[in-house]
Write a protein that binds this DNA or RNA. Structure first.
Length: 288
DNA sequence: AGGATAGCCTGCGGGC
DNA sequence: TGCCCGCAGGCTATCC
């Protein structure tokens, strides 16, 4: 389930395959995972999905990321947003093929293939189709339409930003960390991990969180996300980077997926409950 | 209007 | 063996 660290690992690993390359041909196998837009900024309107709209004959100049979304920019102007949803892969077609040999399912669900001028190919594969591709005529249209409503990126979020966005909310802190308009990139895994690192209970109402605690929480978010990127992200089941490599961060999770097991700090059994529709695990001794 | 909830979708693992 | 059910979850639409 790609959250910010997994998406950043995909961005970094797919970058050498795309940067300064020309897209020779785009194969759209399932157009319903794509949405194309014409016009710029607030005058954007949805148009027919075509290979030309999906960067055919464009030269890729930059890969950006905000939260869980990747942006692909081109010399000619058009730009794509790639969102992996929860089962999406944006990867070297050869890496997907290699995995297909050991796992019959891997070859299925490839929705879009970008064939590059150097004969390499990158594909978007997404079995559950919670992800998608959004195409725009410009970088500014992409930013306006896909990024503008998101909060600050999780890697650089500050306590003051969290406090400004959420301190008056009566919601539980866990629910707020999952809200992409508050902070972009945190999902269920890293929300639980960050709250454990910050020693704050996920059930706490935002109105009861102090300025010092907002700082601690922001620092914990930045820390767990950076640590995860450094270990290649978390592979629970499906996640692999653009080269088909698994992450290792799941080996160091303190709470996620460890309900009922002993707390790594105090040894008492970890609590679990459904919060904001998500399984939430925490240590009721260590997290106040 | 803030906040809670349902639903989208596939694959996997547990239970019978 | 095989079927059914529950679960995983990012995000949007919808309702209260």
């Amino acid at each position: 389930m790609p959250e910010l660290p997994e998406v950043e690992c995909v961005r970094r690993s797919v970058e050498p395959l795309l940067l300064n390359k020309r897209v020779a041909r785009v194969e759209v196998r399932r157009s319903d995972v794509c949405e194309c837009f014409a016009g710029s900024d607030e005058k954007i309107k949805s148009v027919k999905v075509t290979p030309a709209r999906l960067l055919e004959r464009c030269d890729i100049t930059q890969l950006i990321r905000h939260g869980k979304q990747i942006g692909i920019l081109t010399k000619q102007g058009p730009a794509l947003c790639v969102h992996l949803g929860m089962s999406g892969q944006f990867a070297d077609a050869k890496a997907i093929e290699r995995r297909a040999k050991t796992d019959a399912v891997q070859g299925k669900h490839i929705h879009v293939v970008w064939r590059l001028s150097d004969a390499s190919a990158v594909c978007f594969r997404d079995p559950r189709r919670f992800g998608g591709i959004w195409a725009y005529e410009s970088e500014s249209a992409l930013r306006e339409h896909r990024f503008a409503s998101l909060g600050p990126d999780g890697l650089i979020v500050t306590g003051a930003q969290l406090q400004a966005a959420a301190s008056k909310s009566h919601r539980a802190i866990k629910a707020v960390l999952l809200d992409q308009t508050v902070v972009a990139g945190v999902g269920n895994i890293y929300a639980d991990e960050a709250l454990f690192a910050a020693k704050v209970s996920p059930t706490r109402a935002c109105t009861n969180i102090t300025a010092a605690e907002w700082d601690t929480i922001a620092r914990a978010i930045r820390h767990v996300l950076n640590e995860s990127i450094a270990t290649g992200g978390s592979t629970l089941r499906d996640y692999v980077n653009a080269n088909g490599e698994r992450g290792k961060n799941q080996e160091t999770h303190a709470v996620y997926g460890r309900r009922g097991k002993p707390c790594v700090v105090c040894g008492s059994p970890l609590q679990h409950e459904t919060l904001a529709q998500r399984t939430t695990v925490w240590c009721s001794k260590c997290q106040q």
